[in-house]
Simulated scan of single mutants.
Amino acid sequence: MAEHNKELPKIAEIDELGNGTKSEVLSSAQRARIERNRLKARALRDARLVQRPNTDGGPRPAPAPDTGGGFLPDEEAAPAQRPVAPPAPIVDPTERPHCQDCERPFAQSYLFDTFGHPVCDECRDDDGAHALVTRTEARAAFLLKDCDLDLRPPPLRCVRRRNPHGSRLGDMRLYLRAQVEERARLVWGSERALEEERERREEARARSRHNTTARRLRALRMDVRSSLFDRTRALHTHDFGPERYDEAADQYSRVCTDCGHVETYEKM
């Protein structure tokens, strides 16, 4: 256990030496380093639980609950998922990726290790392009389907978090906003085409709401008319002719051949 705990400082030293001179760490870089250390601690803990031999042949006792100390996560890993250690820093300077924002090489970053997005920790923007969006938001705001996220090559990488609405709903899948926007431009061709599709769908929803309200008002007026009708005088039995459909009003009507009474109605 002591050997595993000593690996985290070594990786951090390689990261600082690999980036060159030691510079002032921004708040975003601190959050990225904390996230990496948390994932490493979780992987080491899960690896010890999986590889620990069971000598008595009985069921393995449940692990002790997490107290929240150190970098251990709040949630436990799913039993079916095997722990995957985060990638190690790239030591060879010739193989290091370059940040697409500052164009400087880096040995390791949270966005690159988690999403494959070549941005260093110093350029990470958690409130902008590097924010995390849920799968529902990716489908609603960017008009993407599940196949666009999972099947269209390359599939978008995501991180899983516990659903705040309840554990029975399953884990949330969070995607990188910059990658979701790029996938939306790839699917729709351009940002202008995406915006036009948004406007078209909003107009269709508005028309649907208007038609629903109009149908309810017509049904209410018909109920009021029927309640005011004096049924004691309704001795005549109507003999209606063929029905007619009014496309503008979206309703049917038929006329009594004897008294000329017009009856309007809708069909579901």
Rank of each mutant, 00 (worst) to 15 (best):
residue 190 S to N: 05
residue 192 R to D: 14
residue 200 R to S: 11
residue 189 G to W: 05
residue 176 L to R: 00
residue 180 V to L: 09
residue 175 Y to F: 15
residue 201 R to N: 03
residue 196 E to L: 15
residue 198 R to G: 00
residue 193 A to W: 03
residue 163 N to G: 13
residue 203 E to L: 14
residue 183 R to Q: 07
residue 164 P to C: 07
residue 203 E to A: 15
residue 181 E to K: 08
residue 196 E to W: 06
residue 182 E to V: 13
residue 191 E to G: 14
residue 204 A to H: 07
residue 184 A to P: 02
residue 172 M to V: 11
residue 192 R to G: 14
residue 187 V to F: 09
residue 186 L to C: 07
residue 180 V to C: 06
residue 182 E to Y: 05
residue 164 P to N: 04
residue 180 V to I: 15
residue 204 A to W: 06
residue 191 E to R: 11
residue 199 E to Y: 05
residue 193 A to H: 10
residue 194 L to Q: 02
residue 200 R to Y: 03
residue 170 G to F: 10
residue 204 A to F: 08
residue 170 G to W: 09
residue 163 N to K: 04
residue 194 L to A: 10
residue 173 R to L: 11
residue 179 Q to F: 10
residue 198 R to C: 00
residue 164 P to D: 05
residue 170 G to I: 12
residue 189 G to R: 02
residue 162 R to G: 15
residue 169 L to Y: 12
residue 201 R to D: 02
residue 194 L to F: 06
residue 173 R to P: 09
residue 163 N to A: 14
residue 199 E to Q: 14
residue 179 Q to N: 11
residue 184 A to K: 02
residue 181 E to H: 04
residue 163 N to T: 06
residue 189 G to N: 06
residue 176 L to I: 01
residue 200 R to K: 07
residue 180 V to A: 08
residue 199 E to D: 12
residue 193 A to L: 14
residue 175 Y to T: 00
residue 176 L to T: 00
residue 177 R to S: 14
residue 174 L to R: 02
residue 192 R to N: 12
residue 175 Y to C: 07
residue 161 R to H: 12
residue 175 Y to Q: 02
residue 185 R to E: 11
residue 183 R to H: 04
residue 194 L to E: 01
residue 171 D to C: 07
residue 172 M to G: 06
residue 199 E to K: 11
residue 175 Y to W: 03
residue 178 A to E: 04
residue 188 W to K: 02
residue 165 H to I: 05
residue 187 V to D: 03
residue 173 R to F: 08
residue 185 R to G: 00
residue 203 E to S: 08
residue 194 L to S: 03
residue 177 R to I: 13
residue 184 A to V: 04
residue 197 E to W: 01
residue 164 P to S: 04
residue 172 M to N: 13
residue 167 S to A: 14
residue 161 R to A: 11
residue 182 E to F: 10
residue 169 L to A: 10
residue 173 R to Q: 12
residue 177 R to W: 12
residue 202 E to V: 09
